[in-house]
Computed example of a mutant assay.
Amino acid sequence: MPRIRVEVDGVPYDDDVEPRLLLVHYLRDRLGKVGTPVGCDTTNCGACTVLMEGLSVKSCSVPAVQADERQVTTVEGLGMNGTPHPMQQAFHEAHALQCGYCTPGMIMAAIDLLRENPDPSDEEIREGLEGNLCRCTGYQNIVRAVRAAADEMRRQPEREVAP
């Protein structure tokens, strides 16, 4: 059985994993990171999006062994000292969720989008999030939240992603 060393939300882990174990199941079942939901299991919805080495990945399509010697950030690892990440705060303030199922993946994909483009237009936000589906909203508040978070993150660049 392969052994992996991975840092998740700033905490190092050293585990034996089955070669076919998916990252989403490793995070949820082994590490208790249940903030990353299992959505479609086919990469279509994006609910399971996490950051690996700062880039968004759909964890339902990534074998856990590919996270070996890498840093993974889940939605649970975003806040600093009890303070929500600007993206989390913006989603809350803009009412950018209804059922909340897509929210963790949407937040993680939006953070990666802002890493690439810190000042996106509404159209660029929509294009950047097109791999993440929300079945409840009309996306208006999600776009509004990403724009607000982008403004805040430009004011506080040290708050990009923690850890």
Rank of each mutant, 00 (worst) to 15 (best):
Q88Y: 08
S59F: 04
E18G: 11
A67P: 04
D15V: 08
A64I: 00
V65C: 05
L51W: 01
Q89D: 10
D9Y: 13
P19Q: 14
M80C: 12
K33H: 15
R28D: 09
T36G: 01
V62P: 04
K58A: 07
R20E: 13
P63F: 12
R20C: 06
C45A: 09
V75P: 00
A47Q: 03
R70K: 14
Q71S: 13
M52I: 09
R30T: 11
V72S: 02
D9T: 12
P37D: 08
D9E: 14
Y13G: 04
G77I: 09
E18F: 15
T73R: 15
C40I: 08
V62G: 02
C48G: 09
S59V: 03
S61D: 13
L51F: 00
S56H: 11
E93C: 05
L51I: 02
V11R: 15
S61F: 04
N44Y: 08
R20L: 12
V8N: 00
G54T: 06
N81W: 10
M87I: 00
V65Y: 07
D41S: 11
M80K: 15
P37S: 07
P37V: 09
T73G: 02
H85N: 15
D14N: 14
L27E: 12
G54V: 07
Q66L: 12
R30A: 12
G39P: 04
T74F: 05
D68G: 06
T74S: 07
A94H: 13
T74A: 06
Q66C: 08
K58I: 02
L31F: 10
D15N: 14
Q66E: 12
M87F: 00
E76G: 13
M52K: 02
V57Y: 01
C48D: 12
C60M: 03
Q88E: 13
